[in-house]
Design a protein around this nucleic acid. Structure first.
Lengths: 199, 199
DNA sequence: GCGATATTAGAGAGCCCTCTCTATAATCAC
DNA sequence: GTGATTATAGAGAGGGCTCTCTAATATCGC
């Protein structure tokens, strides 16, 4: 039997994530990741065939984690309630995993890579995209509302709310949860009888 | 008198923008910008002291253009109407200047740079940020609503709507204008009597 | 034409990065 | 212990990038 591994692939992905959110995409070189993780470059390339493959793995690991949670909420029983919960879960997840959230909010997969997406990663990416599309489509149907409207309310609005804080290096305050729920209600539910004018 | 310039600085900024939106931040090297613009690298460095200075100049040129328009709408007479117009102007501007919009939507200034923001750019950036903050603060006061709510409705929601299309390489369809106005009304105005359930 | 001035033009020093390659080490079945 | 297998470890080839430096060039006032 073989020599046991000394470094976990996740150690490298974690290092890459840290570099990415603190220093930006240009700072994430395979060499920098290896240095930061305290791993010889040879060992890095033993696990990942290329820098692009490493970045793709980081991206996919993160999207998978996020979508698992968001999707679970969408499948909840009462639709409007599920919608609110899914939307707010974006903020909750962001608070629980600020670095991962930054990765998703600030970068596109293609922007992290130098070349084309490695074939193996492409399959994983397509599966994820498919699952997300399908989940949203099904949910829109349950609500009886156009997909565009549902996507706007559940994806882009919470996204914007999370992004607002993250770009300032903070975590979204709980006060925006209310704004997001209110927006979801306004777009997907019956209009609220009277809006409280907070001031 | 001196020899007349042969290249305009904007030619370089345009080339950088094109590289940025089509290839991502990592692709925008000073060398690549010069190649793309058909300018010798020496001439590039004659205009910009460093790659970072060039990228900062591109960013600032773009933010200034965007804010000029957004700010003008905010100063419109009837507040709720001004709010709707400002919010929708984000989408209009995005359609008129898709590449510039992508720059603002997809990248943060710091992510484009390798090092710290050059001092000269820092002053310009601070001025811009100050003007934006002040404009929003004043508008929130006119509306008599909390700044956070106004920022969410006028900045982040339209931002999200624009981003939705741009990340797919498209320009926002006019159909989202309605969603944005509806959201602005719901968050800043009196609730609409009855929402039309489109389907 | 002639200096003064600003700009072009491009070669190349030095640096970092990606990725490869080879030598070495650790584990297990027998 | 031996062989098979899988990792580690790190040096270095080759390439691109940033930025500098020098030589050449275009314009103007006189």
């Amino acid at each position: 039997m073989p020599r046991p591994p000394r470094y976990d692939a996740d150690v490298l992905l974690d290092a890459a994530l840290e570099l990415l959110v603190t220093q930006g995409a240009r700072a994430v070189s395979a060499a920098a990741v290896a240095r930061r993780a305290g791993v010889p470059s040879g060992s890095l390339y033993h696990r990942f065939p290329s820098r692009d493959a490493l970045l793709a793995a980081l991206w996919l690991r993160t999207v998978e984690a996020f979508q698992a949670e968001f999707g679970a909420h969408l499948r909840g029983s009462e639709p409007l309630r599920a919608a609110r919960q899914a939307a707010v879960s974006v903020l909750t997840w962001t608070r629980a995993h600020p670095e991962q959230a930054q990765l998703l909010l600030r970068f596109r997969l293609a922007d992290l890579l130098d070349g084309a997406l490695p074939a193996e990663a492409k399959a994983r990416a397509r599966a994820l995209r498919g699952a997300a599309e399908e989940g949203l489509r099904a949910f829109a149907q349950r609500l009886g509302l156009p997909e565009e409207r549902v996507r706007f309310a559940l994806v882009h609005v919470p996204y914007a709310a999370a992004r607002a804080s993250l770009t300032r290096g903070e975590v979204p305050p709980t006060s925006v949860d209310g704004l997001v729920e209110e927006t979801v209600d306004a777009l997907l539910g019956r209009p609220r009888p009277a809006r409280r004018r907070v001031r």
